[in-house]
Design a protein around this nucleic acid. Structure first.
Length: 413
DNA sequence: GAATGAATAT
DNA sequence: TATATTCATT
């Protein structure tokens, strides 16, 4: 069972950038435990990603979402020292072939679809048709030769990266060690260094914003604004997800789950209410002072995440939304809106919180919407947040319109 | 010489 | 924008 710590929304980002999200409890495995990461079923965090049926507009096959790609100008090769299934895609003049998988016969896609709970790690190497230059080296040696390969940091690869960084400690994580822990031979220290640079940069950014949020919190207290309630309606007291970027401090007794396989989150984020931020106009039916969806981590907006990545909030599987009319937004086709009736066992999601964006046709049948929503809600871990992008014509926004919600359903325990 | 990380290039 | 590459530093 997950105990939910005081959860607060940190929606203070004006840049549509994912901030932090977390839920957790003291019943998570201790952070100091070496088996912590192993104890987490990361696939639960990615529920929904592999729902190919709901994701018709992916620019790549759903299975690749959990894979990483490396573009190469020549052959591809992956050697893994860890039990990571590796799928190698060769792309040669439009021809794509899967050439390897630890399943021996099935692609990781199939495995992921068939077994949601099974942790599937896979890698994809995409090879471009650029001029090969082996320079007399073996394929392993020539991997990632300058200008030859480009590592595509997919969620899965990033998760492994984060896992390694956390294992080492953010301050002690250096490329060589990270590479070692990741156990993906097709990566080079330079690849890691580059990504680490970005990772640290983002971490620094988060720290700065956290300080800003803390400042806002102080101001709100000074001005007597009660956090968590505006008027008669509760607003967000729940912390938005922290995407795959670094926990700032260890949390020995608080193990929030969040996306990207991040097993931990900065505790300071857990107690920092966001500054009031104007809601984007495209979000219909927003109550006054309703919180924004959590600002998105850059990874959320990468090409891998054109669909929402599952976050931590969870809903009772039995919950079903009911439709309600949406408020038209000039210039933006009104998304199909659903409300989720207030009920017991729903996490403290704020009113107005976007819960799920379903890449459906804009005018799908009621049945298909209901089926899609129902499918989403049936998952113990609902994907969220959905970023701040306006609903596209092929998406359906699901928005929580009610609340009065205070406890975690047993399904999340 | 290798590793690192920041700056810069692509 | 994301990643690769360069370069100064250790």
């Amino acid at each position: 069972m997950l105990a939910v710590s005081p959860l607060r929304n940190t929606n203070n980002e004006r840049e549509s950038e994912m901030e932090a999200f977390s839920m957790g409890g003291d019943e998570f495995p201790d952070i100091s435990s070496g088996s912590l990461l192993d104890s987490i079923d990361f696939d639960d965090l990615f529920v929904g990603i592999n729902d190919g049926d709901l994701l018709p507009d992916l620019e790549m096959d759903p299975e690749i979402l959990a894979e990483f790609s490396i573009s190469s100008g020549e052959e591809s090769e992956i050697n893994t020292s860890t039990p990571v299934s590796v799928s190698v895609e060769k792309v040669d003049e439009g021809r794509v072939e899967k050439s390897a998988s630890d399943t021996g016969s099935e692609s990781s896609l199939i495995l992921e679809k068939e077994s949601v709970s099974k942790r599937e790690e896979s890698a994809v190497v995409n090879q471009s048709h650029k001029e090969a230059d082996k320079r007399g080296k073996s394929s392993a040696q020539s991997k990632n030769q300058p200008g030859k390969r480009k590592v595509d940091w997919t969620p899965e690869l990033h998760r492994r990266f984060v896992q390694a960084v956390e294992q080492l400690g953010v301050d002690k994580a250096v490329p060589s060690r990270i590479l070692e822990l990741m156990g993906i031979d097709c990566l080079t220290r330079h690849n890691i260094a580059s990504h680490l640079q970005k990772y640290r940069s983002h971490r620094k950014h988060l720290l700065a914003r956290e300080a800003e949020a803390a400042s806002w919190s102080q101001r709100r207290q000074m001005y007597g604004t009660t956090s968590g309630r505006v008027g008669k309606r509760d607003v967000n007291t729940w912390l938005a997800p922290t995407m795959g970027f670094p926990p700032i401090t260890p949390m020995p007794h608080f193990r929030p789950l969040h996306v990207w396989g991040h097993p931990s989150v900065d505790q300071s984020m857990m107690n920092t209410p966001p500054p009031p931020t104007p809601l984007p106009a495209w979000i219909p039916v927003q109550p006054p002072h309703a919180p924004l969806p959590p600002a998105a981590d850059p990874f959320w907006h990468s090409h891998h995440h054109r669909i929402p990545t599952p976050g931590t909030p969870c809903f009772p599987p039995r919950m079903r939304p009911t439709r309600f009319p949406s408020t038209p937004v000039p210039g933006i086709p009104p998304p199909a809106m659903y409300k989720i009736d207030p009920g017991v066992g729903v996490p403290p999601v704020p009113s107005g919180q976007i819960l799920h964006q379903l890449p459906l046709d804009f005018h799908p049948s009621k049945e298909s919407i209901d089926a899609a929503i129902g499918d989403a809600l049936s998952k113990p871990w609902l994907p969220l947040p959905l970023g701040l992008k306006p609903p596209s014509t092929d998406s359906v926004m699901v928005e929580l319109q009610h609340q009065g919600i205070s406890k975690i359903p047993p399904s999340c325990a």
